[in-house]
Structures are given as structure tokens and as C-alpha cells.
Design a binder for these strands. Sequence first.
DNA 1: TATGAGATCAACT
DNA 2: GTTGATCTCATAC
Length: 194
Amino acid sequence: MLKTLHRRFFDRSVHEVAPELIGATLLIGGVGGRIVELEAYHHTDPAAHSFGGETERNAVMFGPGGFAYVYRSYGIHWCLNFVCEPAGSASAVLIRAIEPLEGLAKMRRRRGVDDARMLCSGPGKLGEALGVTRDKHNGLPLDRLPFQLFARDEMAEIATGPRIGITKAADLPWRYGLKGSKFLSKPFARHHVE
DNA sequence: TATGAGATCAACT
DNA sequence: GTTGATCTCATAC
């Protein structure tokens, strides 16, 4: 039996929360699966959207932990973050990849592809497969429908590495993944096992 | 396999 | 006007 994660789970450092979320189950409207990859963004980090201060776009990041922050990426994709740490610290984790487990047919329809490995292996793909938009999900609490979050129920081997697609602070090893998963956006070069 | 362009929007210079 | 926490498709090796 899986244990539901309360939103207070997120009221801690992103670097504590991030590895614990690997292997957790995320469903939105009953569609989703196991989180296998994410990245941490701390407010002291030049790559974080909150680094330059509060704006209309990133306002949710400045609220309490346990809420969804959704932003438009490259004008095209919707990407999903979980806000972490107490209100005001403006830190979050970007959900980058999921192993699809529930609602496969719906994801295939939304994505227009058949291969399960192509459904959620990247932040933009994941947003499309789970039907995430800013209008519908930005600012919603993660412990109420349509969100469902369950703690992982078995040990997970965590890989870490540099984050993907950023130019600032690109050397920080703040990407976390489930070691050996076939559903990552990219393989990890070296793995560091927790 | 690998690199390059285009799509398209909000923040920032 | 430029850039970016991306993805897809086209063309080249």
C-alpha cells in the first residue's frame, strides 16, 4: 500500500527532497507513473527562475512548499515543478521524467506516439503526456486532486549529475535520477549511488 | 549517430 | 531584439 505524501513533505531543503522523490508515484487526473528524473533549483542558483526576484511568472515559487509551479519553456512546452522549502525561499524541483504506469492510452493520445519510452522522457514531453498547463495547474497544492503523490515503497539507487540544457551554473550536480532506468531523458554518465 | 533550424512566449537588456 | 530549465524533424556523415 503506497503512502500519500503530504504537502509538508516539501517544507525542507530541495536537496533533501529531490532524492527522496525519485521512485515516488505522481498522478495527475489518474494519469502518470513513477518519477525517475528531476532537477533541483535553489534560489541562490543563477539558473533558477527565482534568482532574479519575484515576478508574475515565478510567484508560486515564493510561496510555501508542496505546490505546483508550471512555466512555459521555449514558448512551446509546459514544464512542471514542485515548490520546496518554507515560504519565501523560492526553491523547486523540476520533474524531468516519469516511467509511465497509469493512463497509458491517454498519454499516447496526447503525445501522438506509441513508444512508452517516448511519452514522459523529458520535461516538455511529460507536461504534454500528463496534460499540464499553467491555467489548470499552476499554484495547485500537490496533496489534493487532480494531483496524487505517493512515497516510494522500496529502496532506490540514485544517480546524480549536471543539469541539462542550462548555461548558468552548469557544473552543479543537481540532476537526480533512478539508476539504470530506461525512461530517463538522457543517461547519466557516472552514477553516484546514495 | 550527429548536428542544425524552427516553433513561439515571457522575461530581460 | 535576444535568450532560454525543450522537442521534433530534416539533412549530413
